[in-house]
């Protein structure tokens, strides 16, 4: 589903974010991406949704070589990957409903279909009663769950999460992780970047460990 082939990323200024990283993720897998901050976790995710391009090597998503994807085609790649961002990336002047509906509106779904899917996604993350509220009125955990609902609302085959439990207490973190687990159960490929090592060891999943841009893999 996702394959990195000798991928290096050097940022302007000379910082080596990733050094010759290779790994492969099968469809329906769930992995954790760990490492100290600045180890290259975010860079890896950015390469998958084409926010960055590799300096060397190739990234494959569903068999497509992302190096061959032109700027105009980037939106279609992003539509097949749901992303949960650490800072949520919500629209604060729109309701919860409109935030979650955004990917569907972009993809050109019909009005009625949008309503149906948004409500399903919100009920999945337990926010059915908040659809008319604005994100500012929600707690950090609730905002994170809005972000998750938006990431899964158009049923992408791949779900990426960048520090989804970063600012949450352990109980909320567990709830969020359970959600990702549920999505994985229905066949979604899930990749979660985190430095919450306790959580990782409890979940007993494959772990990709980054250290200063180099990948050290460890089995569960």
């Amino acid at each position: 589903m996702i394959r990195f082939d000798e991928v290096s990323k050097r940022y302007p200024g000379g910082k080596e974010a990733l050094i010759r990283v290779s790994f492969e993720l099968d469809a329906g897998e769930m992995v954790f991406l760990t490492g100290h901050s600045g180890a290259g976790k975010s860079t890896m995710m950015k390469l998958i949704i084409l926010m960055e391009r590799p300096s060397q090597g190739q990234v494959f998503l569903e068999g497509t070589n992302l190096n061959r994807v032109s700027r105009r085609q980037v939106p279609w790649v992003r539509r097949s990957v749901g992303v949960v961002f650490q800072n949520h990336q919500l629209l604060f002047d729109r309701t919860v409903f409109d935030n979650v509906a955004l990917p569907l509106a972009i993809a050109g779904f019909k009005h009625r279909e949008i309503g149906r899917r948004v409500r399903a996604a919100l009920s999945k993350v337990g926010l059915s009663d908040k659809e008319k509220q604005f994100p500012v009125t929600l707690s950090g955990g609730e905002q994170q769950r809005v972000g998750i609902a938006r990431a899964v609302v158009n049923k992408p085959p791949v779900l990426l999460a960048d520090e989804p439990t970063g600012n949450l207490d352990p109980e909320l973190s567990k709830e969020i992780m359970d959600l990702f687990h549920q999505f994985n159960q229905v066949g979604v490929t899930v990749m979660i970047a985190t430095h919450d090592l306790g959580l990782v060891s409890r979940m007993k999943r494959r772990e990709l460990k980054l250290d200063h841009g180099r990948l050290e893999e460890s089995a569960p």
């Binding site: 939106p75 961002f85 629209l91 002047d93 990917p103 972009i106």
Partner: peptide
């Protein structure tokens, strides 16, 4: 920020 978010979730240039 809205434009960035729309682009992140797959909004095309024309959208």
């Amino acid at each position: 920020s809205e434009i960035e978010i729309v682009k992140l979730v797959g909004g095309t240039d024309s959208f």
